[in-house]
Design a protein around this nucleic acid. Structure first.
Lengths: 227, 227
DNA sequence: GTCTATATGGGGATAGAC
DNA sequence: GTCTATCCCCATATAGAC
């Protein structure tokens, strides 16, 4: 049994997600996992490699779930384009994991993922980008079919914003209860997912800017400037 | 002249934003600032207090700019509600700082802010929340007037998502060029701001969910689950 | 594969001279 | 207010016995 290896992965995932990578010591990881400190360097080569292993495992699982959802939706729609709300669900649903059975596993990785997005550029970028690309091709084709009137450039940006809103929700939803004076409940994950999907779908469908694209200045530049 | 104190603040702001707080040593800060290591502990009490001072300074500046924009827009509209795109600009424009004069100052703080949102819960939360609240009351009144048909709870969530999309843009826009194969240009800040505003405004105006609110399960739960 | 013990370095913080 | 020198802790990583 490689019980040890998995224990380390799971503990590290949880601690890195909760406290951040830099702020978490390997001692904390091994102590929580109930294994010896040296085991980390035996099974992984370094703290850095541990993070990479961890991250790859999670991303593959995530993309598997996204792909499965997309497959199901496409089958369900026959040859017709899958409606945007279902595409958005396939993209972000597995990140939030608002499933009825709270295994907590994915939710934790979601936090870690959100934190990785916000991390400084580094060797992680390779993994991040390559794993993002693993799903983004599938998603790109589907979203183009769903929203044929919108340019590809705009669709990239809007999908990017969608990921941002989702990552923020994963990571700092603790704040919204405080800011809203208890009006908003971040723990009702299904309701949050639904709100998020509604927001993103509307954003994806926003009217595209008319006229010259990529042009700066002009009347537009003035428009957004106060007075 | 408290040249030293300001040098430390500026260097720390840049380094914390670029590399993250934990990953930045005080030695790196003082060496970049061209001051002595001990100066940090003389002018601030600790690394932690340095971050707080830094953060407070930046948030106050940010909120001053937001408030000024909102003031201008409200004056411009007479008694009538300020249109959503202007409110959104007041909220996120100063974070992105797509101004013509590239002083770089605010942009850097924007990155730091984005990173702080993504940081683990800690003593920073107090500052973060209190400084957010400093502007959110103003913004709340204005957005309610602009979108009277939407519940306050929903408006909180959607503003939260808006901040998330913006923070993500501040922090990981380096990724979009790679993912889009060079199609998207993150350096054209004015164009990005405009796209972001368009996306958020559409999200804010999304149709609100009909029927029981806060209810889980039911047909909705089924709706978002694939097959 | 797992443990103990330790090497090695870097970090924040401070004392005390100037 | 600024510097040098140093304290002391905790981190990652490894060597080598079991």
């Amino acid at each position: 049994m490689t019980d040890t290896k998995d224990s380390i992965l799971n503990s590290a995932e949880r601690l890195f997600a909760e406290r951040g990578y830099e702020a978490t010591s390997l001692r904390a990881v091994t102590s929580e996992a109930g294994v010896n400190l040296a085991a980390v360097n035996y099974h992984f080569r370094s703290k850095d490699q541990l993070l990479k292993a961890l991250f790859t495992r999670g991303m593959q699982r995530l993309n598997r779930e996204r792909t499965a959802l997309l497959d199901a939706y496409e089958a369900e729609c026959g040859g017709k384009p899958v409606p945007p709300e279902k595409l958005v669900h396939a993209l972000i649903g597995p990140m939030l994991d608002a499933s009825r059975d709270r295994s907590r596993g994915r939710e934790i990785f979601g936090m870690l993922l959100g934190r990785m997005y916000a991390s400084p550029k580094g060797p992680l970028d390779d993994i991040l980008v390559s794993d993002i690309e693993a799903f983004s091709e599938r998603f790109k084709s589907a979203i183009r079919r769903a929203l044929p009137g919108t340019s590809l450039e705009e669709l990239y940006w809007r999908s990017f914003f969608a990921i941002g809103a989702t990552a923020h929700t994963l990571i700092s939803s603790r704040l919204i209860g405080i800011i809203s004076n208890g009006l908003c409940d971040a723990d009702d994950r299904e309701a949050v997912l639904e709100r998020l999907i509604r927001f993103i779908v509307a954003g994806l469908q926003a009217p595209e800017r008319q006229g010259a694209k990529g042009k700066k200045a002009g009347p537009t530049g003035k428009k957004w400037r106060g007075k």
